[in-house]
């Protein structure tokens, strides 16, 4: 499966960079501020698949929102290819945790929404829709309404809709939460297949250590608004269930869980 590899010896600007980023939220007019992200530094190379792990409420989604352009940092810079992020844009596609497939558009029209927004011609849009529908195995449902699909199918449509737009960075905020193991595994395959075709950089938030081990080139743990641990995942793709259950993977899992537990214990 072809993909862009992050070559540490090659000097290329990071696809994404958090440079001493702090984000504060005022707590309900009290004058007090909650520091969601605290002088965070992180670089992600082009084509890299980074999974961000960490407990709830420790700044992961805030990082994603800043990278998506939905909010601005209080201090520091969030950069995309060296340029400060200012507002949402098609070059940074977002797959949300909640269902965002447009209910009033058919499946094929959902997939080509971004293309239409950018003025791509109909014939080209139809080709792209056909291609992605085939990749996500939903060719028969091109004219279906989203309410006629299952949750897993709508997730596939959501991912295809964002990737059909060919973003340079793909941001995913716990996109498979609530799905059962079988559906989740299937969606992992779909995501990897689409990602290998598009070759974008991926910023993927998850609570699931196994999911991170299955998908990531690099796992970053964020706690209390800071990067506290980073680790490369040395396994080749595709990563089977047997590989994730192997001794090497278990060791990595224990390392990650150990770090998470220790950091939480020290904080309390």
């Amino acid at each position: 499966m072809a993909r862009l590899a992050a070559d540490p010896n090659r000097r290329v600007p990071p696809a994404v960079e958090f440079r001493n980023v702090t984000k504060r939220f005022e707590i309900g007019g009290s004058g007090q501020a909650h520091v969601a992200v605290d002088h965070l530094n992180l670089s992600i190379q082009p084509g890299e698949f980074v999974c961000v792990l960490g407990p709830s409420g420790h700044g992961k989604s805030t990082m994603l929102n800043m990278l998506a352009g939905f909010t601005e940092p209080s201090e520091g810079y969030v950069l995309h290819e060296g340029n400060p992020v200012s507002g949402p844009g098609a070059e940074r596609g977002v797959v949300f945790q909640r269902d965002t497939v447009f209910p009033w558009k058919r499946v094929a029209d959902n997939i080509t929404f971004g293309l239409k927004a950018r003025g791509i011609r109909r014939t080209e849009r139809e080709k792209v829709a056909a291609h992605y529908l085939k990749l996500i195995d939903l060719e028969r449902f091109a004219r279906a309404w989203p309410h006629q699909l299952s949750g897993g199918m709508r997730r596939r449509v959501a991912i295809a809709s964002v990737l059909a737009n060919r973003p340079q960075v793909l941001l995913m905020d716990e996109p498979f939460t609530g799905l059962d193991y079988v559906r989740r595994d299937k969606l992992h395959r779909v995501l990897e297949q689409l990602w290998s075709e598009v070759g974008c950089t991926v910023f993927f938030i998850t609570h699931d250590v196994d999911e991170a081990l299955t998908l990531a080139d690099r796992i970053v743990i964020v706690m209390h608004g800071k990067v506290t641990f980073e680790m490369r995942v040395p396994f080749e793709r595709p990563r089977s269930t047997e590989l994730i259950a192997s001794k090497d993977a278990v060791d990595l899992r224990l390392t990650l869980l150990g770090h998470l537990s220790k950091a939480l214990t020290e904080a309390s």
């Binding site: 949402p88 844009g89 977002v94 965002t100 447009f102 929404f113 971004g114 964002v162 737009n165």
Partner: peptide, 12 residues
Amino acid sequence: SYGLYARSLGAK
């Protein structure tokens, strides 16, 4: 519900 998503896909 959908505004941010639409804008992240490039919608003006």
